[in-house]
Amino acid sequence: MQIVNHSIPGKKSEKEITFSFNDKFLKAREGQTVAAALMANGIKKFGISRKLQQPRGLFCANGRCCSCFLTVNGLNHVLGCITLVEEGMKVSSNDADPDVRRKANGD
């Protein structure tokens, strides 16, 4: 849920933008990180761990723990907590090891 009237008036932009997560269109505010934009839409699970297949999401929010890995515009393993969301951005969950082969990416 977005906070509309924050207890301390911040300078957060009110400009709304549209991005997608796993092909579903969602709204976010300009200047938000991808991780926060997802959480504002009630999405906490960003991917699954590679060995035990357990859900993962935001943990440190400081670009260190790599728990918020997402695929952003086709690039795997992007840190959702330090990447700003952009209009039209295609975000998907991190569910498997990156496949970097040309063919896999339709190049």
Binding site: R64, F69, H77
Partner: peptide, 8 residues
């Protein structure tokens, strides 16, 4: 040994 390199 993973991506966070023992930061946590």
């Amino acid at each position: 040994m993973g991506p966070c390199q023992a930061k946590i």
